[in-house]
Nucleic acid binder design. Structure first.
Lengths: 343, 343
DNA sequence: CTGTTAGCGCATTCAC
DNA sequence: GTGAATGCGCTAACAG
């Protein structure tokens, strides 16, 4: 059996109160002598406080829940690492909840986390969720009265705290760079239509086009799923279109098209320029290292924890999204346009 | 405020016991009518049991701790996914503990998990740990009387439960395949010396050599750290050695040498054959897809949970490691040896 | 069939 | 300065 505060009381002949006071640093009025006895006993008996009991009386558990779609996705595992590192530093613990992009799991986990008494939730919504489903999740957390931050995938709402990369800017940066290289027909492989992050990247794309006076062509947009597979499908979809560059809204779909391009004997970047999004660590490992938009995802995780844990900052941030600035990382998959296409 | 069992009691005019009995399915002797009243009230008041309180009295929390070195490493994030999926299925929850390969963190997390009342620990030890440090961790868990399974990185000890790939076999398979391709001088890039998993892969390597009557050459062994960087360093170390194939003990270090080989204009597999280990998902994405040894890491995570949660199976497994069979995955980075080297 | 009581391990208020 | 008593939300004997 674990030793309890009671055991120390028996062992020392002191009362439970005294032990608790001393061990919690609230023993201003307790003589040094007594304190030492308590500390000594605690050490001898190898005492460590039962956090479940503390959680029950204090109604704080010093643990938070991280709900995300897929921990095996390097984007999220880097996020998780940032979150975990920040938690450890702050003395918190982390429940990992993997939803496999299921809205139902989202709802279940929110409830379970509440039952477990977590002090907050970091929430990356399931990709399958539409506006209505997001609201359902948000309402649940509100009703449960549990602080939360929406990460990456949602940023509107007056009362909610959210944190995300400035995706519009990211989309803009990528597109502008391609335009500067002389590309005029730039295909897009988006993420799921209902995700705000994907919508915003597209807005940035359009803005850059407009700024350069290039007309937007709907047929160059392929709506994908942020997966390798959808990158491959995008290639097929684009087969009969004219384009000299591709902007994939995440690195995975960029890898997908890349593989397909290579298989078809199309050279990157000589014939087609390719830009990804995320800056996953192995962009660098490909034979043609991938030009991409970097999201500082580890730092996002850290920062999310720091805000969530701080009541003041949470209040400030209601309806006031935290935007993280993306960054263009130029590698070898992009080159000046050398194809003449009728505009 | 959350509604409690007491609120339901007040609301219905019944006693706390009755509520508890009904809600826990132990109300065999309670009339259907009463039951319905209770269920109805629970629904109306939106009741969900406080798991912290339950944890305190039952001394079971239905949560487990997963302690691992680095969640951003795809190997571990896939493991974590397997673990999490199995947990969700079984109705358990998962604490994620990222140690950054620090032994001190290992020790701290073990204690914290115990304080949090977890019902078990899945433990992947820090790479920096030597025999003595592992023992320290094991003793702590034993003293805390908390069930645990050592995953991947440790398999000896009469009283401990462990689960790992049969790394000797993995090393054997990789080496044998290279030998069959005609390679005689096969360089190795190992993992940290103190890790049993790396030691075993080396044993398998030696066994395959011996079986083929090829003498073991110590100078062909480079002791790395399972990182991309150490793959690069391995290349430099091997610069003045004669070899026609490289067996890297994980995919990351394989990528490292691969990059360096490409930079030096050495063609894979025409000049040098390369085999990795792990079968990380982007082995497939490289321009020269990597031949490797597959560890079914997701399944390992799943299985670990299933055993940990089952007292019977835990007993059976004491001192009786669970071995997972690895598998050779042949891709494009290996080819018949066409270099003549004096033996 | 249902209510009363005790207790899980701890923090905390109020006496002594 | 220290101890006894109370309660956090729940389960589990034990009564009745």
């Amino acid at each position: 059996m674990r030793t309890t505060i009671k055991d120390i009381a028996n062992y020392t002949g002191l009362s439970i109160t005294t032990i608790s006071l001393v061990l919690n640093g609230k023993g201003d009025k307790i003589p040094q002598k007594t304190k030492e006895i308590v500390f000594q006993a605690a050490k001898e008996l190898n005492y460590s406080p039962n956090k479940v009991a503390i959680g029950l009386v204090k109604k704080r558990t010093y643990s938070i829940g991280l709900i995300l779609p897929d921990i095996s996705n390097v984007f999220f595992s880097n996020l998780a690492k940032g979150v975990e590192d920040a938690c450890r530093t702050a003395g918190w613990n982390l429940f990992l909840c993997n939803t496999n992009d299921s809205h139902k799991s989202d709802m279940q986990y929110i409830q379970v986390m509440a039952d477990k008494g977590v002090d907050g939730i970091l929430y990356v919504m399931a990709a399958e969720s539409d506006e209505k489903r997001v609201q359902e999740c948000i309402h649940l957390m509100e009703n449960l009265n549990i602080p939360y931050i929406m990460i990456d995938r949602y940023i509107y709402g007056e009362n909610l705290v959210s944190l995300a990369t400035n995706h519009k800017k990211g989309g803009y940066l990528a597109t502008k760079y391609l335009i500067e290289l002389g590309h005029k027909r730039i295909a897009c492989i988006t993420g799921p239509k209902n995700l705000v992050c994907s919508q915003n990247r597209l807005l940035g794309y359009k803005e850059a086009l407009e700024e350069a006076g290039i007309p937007f062509k709907k047929e160059l947009i392929y709506h994908g799923q942020y997966t390798i597979e959808s990158g491959r499908e995008a290639y097929k979809y684009l087969a009969d279109k004219e384009y000299s560059a591709i902007f994939a809204f995440n690195d995975m779909s960029a890898f997908g098209v890349y593989k397909e391009l290579v298989m078809q004997g199309i050279r990157v970047p000589d014939e087609i320029s390719l830009v990804g999004y995320d800056n996953i660590f192995f962009c660098d490992l490909l034979d043609v290292p991938l030009t991409t938009i970097k999201q500082p995802v580890y730092e996002m995780g850290k920062q999310a924890v720091e805000v969530l844990v701080d009541e003041e900052r949470m209040k400030q941030r209601k309806g006031n999204p935290i935007f993280i600035e993306p960054e263009l990382v130029i590698r070898k998959s992009t080159a000046p346009c050398n194809i003449k296409i009728s505009p």
